[in-house]
């Protein structure tokens, strides 16, 4: 009788009631949450834009162009002819057309650039080599371009004898006097220079040309030894004796190489991006302008 009274005491009943209420409350809450989850169906989306930059050589996208490009060449008869020159993705200086030595020639009316021998370069000649950057997407960007030059000998090994300065990349005859690009003297090495586009490159736009001419300095012919070999050729049917003279140079068949690396960064928080991604402290980028101090 004592036990029965304890079980059914007022306190016990009160606790049972609270427990029941809690269970019921929990159950309702769960039901409510389930109903909310299924009844509201919101959709949301966002676009993550990214930067894209391309290297452009003689108006052709170096990276993403066709494997075989058509180049317009000017011939002597003043007719514009087209030739297909094999050119592969990622290739630079795949084809060189040299500038006419005739000082009266102007691009467009008389042949300013003539057909060169693919893969070969004559010292002292000025070739067309137009380098620029292209913004390939719909976001503005800051751009810099690093150009490296070096020589490779006949054994296909990098030459330390030939000066990279003999490979002259110029804009209208000057290596550094370009109003659209600024060279960073702190990044200068014997082989390379880094150039910063002074204004941000707008979405889908092409930059001004960094270079437009390439010349191998004619003094390369004075380097090393020049050998002259004279031999006699057997008289032909006309009984003429012919002397054959062959001139050989130490640096014949050396190959020059140019490497170009174009880099783009975002225009927002660009001050930090310049330091973090480009690793330079004397370059500032803000309000659409890049300054090399």
């Amino acid at each position: 009788m004592k036990i029965r009274n304890t079980i059914l005491s007022k306190r016990t009943l009160a606790l049972l009631a609270v427990t029941a209420l809690l269970f019921c409350g929990g159950g309702f809450a769960g039901t409510k949450a389930a109903l909310t989850y299924f009844s509201n169906d919101y959709t949301a989306g966002f676009q993550l834009d990214h930067l894209q930059v391309h290297l452009v050589e003689n108006e052709n996208d170096v990276c993403c162009g066709e494997n075989e490009s058509i180049y317009t060449v000017h011939r002597t008869n003043d007719k514009v002819a087209q030739e297909k020159i094999p050119k592969y993705k990622g290739d630079l200086v795949g084809y060189l057309g040299y500038k006419n030595e005739n000082k009266d020639a102007h691009y467009g009316d008389t042949p300013a650039y003539k057909v060169g021998t693919p893969g070969k370069v004559d010292p002292g000649r000025t070739y067309k080599e137009e380098l620029s950057a292209r913004n390939g997407n719909n976001v503005d960007e800051y751009v810099r371009l690093t150009v490296r030059k070096y020589w490779v000998n006949k054994e296909k090994k990098k030459s330390t004898v030939m000066d990279p300065a003999l490979i002259k990349l110029t804009y209208n005859g000057s290596a550094y006097n370009n109003s659209a690009w600024a060279v960073n003297p702190k990044e200068h090495t014997v082989e390379s220079d880094t150039y910063y586009l002074k204004n941000k490159l707008g979405a889908g736009a092409d930059s001004a040309l960094l270079f437009n001419e390439l010349t191998i300095d004619g003094s390369v012919a004075d380097l090393g030894n020049k050998k002259t070999t004279t031999t006699k050729k057997s008289p032909g049917p006309d009984n003429q004796e012919v002397t054959v003279i062959t001139y050989t140079y130490d640096y014949d068949d050396f190959t020059f190489y140019i490497e170009a690396d174009v880099q783009a960064i975002q225009t927002h928080n660009a001050t930090d991006a310049v330091k973090s991604l480009w690793g330079v402290s004397n370059v500032s980028a803000k309000n659409g302008k890049v300054t090399v101090k």
Binding site: V53, H54, V62, L92, V93, Y257, A260, D261, V262
Partner: peptide
């Protein structure tokens, strides 16, 4: 983007 090339 990077590219390289040369001539002899």
């Amino acid at each position: 983007e990077q590219a390289s090339g040369g001539a002899t």
